[in-house]
Structures are given as C-alpha cells and as structure tokens.
Amino acid sequence: MITAVLSLTLLGVALGLMLGVADRFFAVAVNPVIAQVEGLMPGSQCGQCGFPGCSAAAAAIVGGAAPVTACGPGGKTLAAALAAKLGVSLDLNAVVDSGPKQARVAEEICIGCCRCGSACTSDAILGASKQIHSVLTEVCNGCGNCVERCPTEALKLQPVPVTLTHWVWPKPVAA
C-alpha cells in the first residue's frame, strides 16, 4: 500500500516537472494563428466590427473576445473559414448574411467636397473638387466609411443588384 502511494506520487511529481520544463523551453512566443486569421480577412481596415483595424479584430477573435461572425464584409464565407480554422462550431444556417453591398452616389445631392474619397479604404471613389463623384462598383467592398463622411448623405450602401448571370436558385424550404 505504501509502495503504491509512493510510486504514484513520484510519478505525478516527475510528470509535473516535465510539464513545467516544457512550458519554459517550448513555449510559443507569438500566436501564429492570429496572423493567419488576419490573412483571411478582407483587410480593408474598415472598422465595422468595432475594433481598430483587422489585426485587432483577428486578435480578439482568436482570443475569444469576438465571435467568428464579427466581420460584416467578410460575410458567411469568412465566418465559415474562421470557424473551420479555429475549431469553433458554427450553425451556418443561422448566420445572417445580407450579401455584399456597394456604395452608390446620389448624383443630384453630391456637392463635390471630396471628403469621401480620402475615407475610402480601397480607392473606389472617383471625383475632383466641385465635380460629381462616382463609385467604381468593381472595387467597392462595402465597408461604409464613405457613408459616414458624406455631409449631404449622398452616399448610400445598397445590396449588389442581382443579374441573370449571378442569380442563384433559392434553397428548397425545409420543415
């Protein structure tokens, strides 16, 4: 009985020491996952998630402070990819993805102040001073920074219009 207690205690102590040594010598200095998560994100630093930039959001998601659905412009695809990477379970049917959005300039209201152009994270707004501005739809990523800056509310985010080539069959309704 004494031998049993002694041997188990010794075993426990030995294993504990090994774990401590390993933690000291094999510790990972920087979490590489954060960099990988940031790589998956759109990278436009739009701030829609509430964090100051994509790297901060990546750190928060990896740390668990933010859900994998935090990135709006990333949508369902990004949420699914992050869930797969981080091993988080995600019910894709519950993720609300209203689809990609684009900004559009209401040309009657635009006064040509140029404030939106400097705010655009992907240089999608064309226009010179006192000229009507226009959004390059192929480049706009729907982050919404320009909408906040426009003093006359000429910019609005709209869903990308569905064309014949991009139309998708609806999923059959299930009970």
Binding site: W169, P170, V173, A174, A175
Partner: peptide, 13 residues
C-alpha cells in the same frame, strides 16, 4: 437529413 413542409416558390426542374 432534409424534411419539408412547403413547396418553394420558384420551382426547379
């Protein structure tokens, strides 16, 4: 596995 109660509005072949 799928279960259904309604037929969808846009019907496919």
């Amino acid at each position: 596995l799928p279960t259904y109660s309604d037929t969808p509005a846009t019907v496919a072949a």
